[in-house]
């Protein structure tokens, strides 16, 4: 009996921590997938936007900043993320869209953009480590394990946001137009769709998703200019694993990576977990080269 109890507890613990990780990865990766899917480029400022959003939220909410409270901080940071997305798209991507090697150019321009944003954050907010308040205080006991209220919010909000994103892309004129541009740019133009405008909307939406991920992270980890660096790498893995650009694939990828990471951390140890993740990553791509839900 005791053995069974221990086993059950272990399963519950890994399930809960896997769920938290997976939900975070959903938030981090969905915007990256949206941009890849629509514009056909990888946006390496994605992680820097997470960090910048966390700083802005801190600046607005923290008593050492403007002290306006967390709600104002979140709203302000989301707006700032959207604006940042528009500016990044306008300066670093739109001018090169008609170049043949736009994919490579965008890697370089967005990598430089990421350095610029991270160093600006360092210049503005200094090296002192900051942290955001948690959205909800206190802990919850779920099925025998402890989980913070903040993590519960992340677990609940991640799928809700994805539902919202799906409804936006599926049922609104703008959302449909974004998918149209992704599937057939020329036919979209012939249908009267302003392609560049749709790119801007998709990019801003993705930046807001990144910003939200950054705000959630800023209460669990410490806010540094590099806050988004490791999440960006994870998001890349999740997006590729899910099947480049496919949003359902990205969500599935996030849960696969999240649970694998939790299981591996528990049973094999944190030290080996990155290696295990890459093994799983390579194994899946060997079996399905275009990712879990990717099209061949």
């Amino acid at each position: 009996m005791a053995l069974l109890d221990t086993l059950l507890l272990a399963l519950k613990t890994t399930f809960v921590s896997g769920l938290v990780l997976a939900s975070l990865y959903v938030l981090m990766a969905s915007g990256l997938a949206l941009v890849w899917n629509t514009l056909g480029i990888f946006n390496f400022t994605h992680g820097a936007i997470m960090a910048a959003a966390a700083y802005v939220a801190w600046q607005i909410s923290d008593p050492k900043g403007y002290g306006l409270g967390l709600a104002a901080g979140i709203v302000g940071a989301l707006i700032a993320s959207g604006v940042m997305g528009l500016v990044i798209n306008r300066l670093l991507i739109a001018p090169f869209l008609n170049q043949k090697n736009v994919v490579l150019i965008a890697v370089m321009t967005t990598l430089s953009g990421a350095f610029f944003i991270e160093n600006s954050a360092l210049l503005i907010w200094g090296p002192r480590i900051k942290q955001l308040e948690k959205v909800v205080d206190g802990n919850l006991r779920v099925a025998g394990t402890v989980i913070s209220g903040h993590e519960v919010v992340i677990i609940v909000i991640a799928p809700l946001l994805m539902l919202g994103l799906w409804a936006f892309l599926k049922f609104t004129w703008t959302g449909r137009a974004i998918r149209a541009v992704a599937q057939n740019r020329e036919f979209a133009e012939l249908s009267g769709i302003d392609v560049r405008r749709m790119y801007a909307v998709a990019f801003a939406t993705a930046a807001m998703l990144a910003g939200f991920a950054g705000i959630m992270l800023g209460a669990i980890r410490f806010i540094t200019p590099g806050l988004g660096a490791e999440p960006l790498l994870k998001a890349l893995i999740v997006v590729i694993l899910g099947g480049l650009g496919s949003i359902p694939g990205t969500i599935l990828g996030a849960y696969v990576v999240g649970f694998s990471e939790a299981l591996s951390t528990y049973y094999i140890g944190a030290y080996w977990t990155q290696a295990v993740l890459f093994l799983i990553f390579i194994a899946i791509l060997l079996i399905r080269p275009s990712g879990l839900l990717g099209k061949d």
């Binding site: 449909r176 137009a177 149209a180 057939n184 020329e186 012939l190 249908s191």
Partner: peptide
């Protein structure tokens, strides 16, 4: 001036109805 291009290049991953709705996007 509306142009239905050669080779029926549609929005392949969308439903017939979604394609038609996009035709009436303007």
């Amino acid at each position: 001036l509306v142009h239905a291009p050669q080779g029926n290049t549609l929005f392949r991953e969308m439903s017939v109805e979604e394609n038609l709705l996009l035709g009436g996007f303007a």
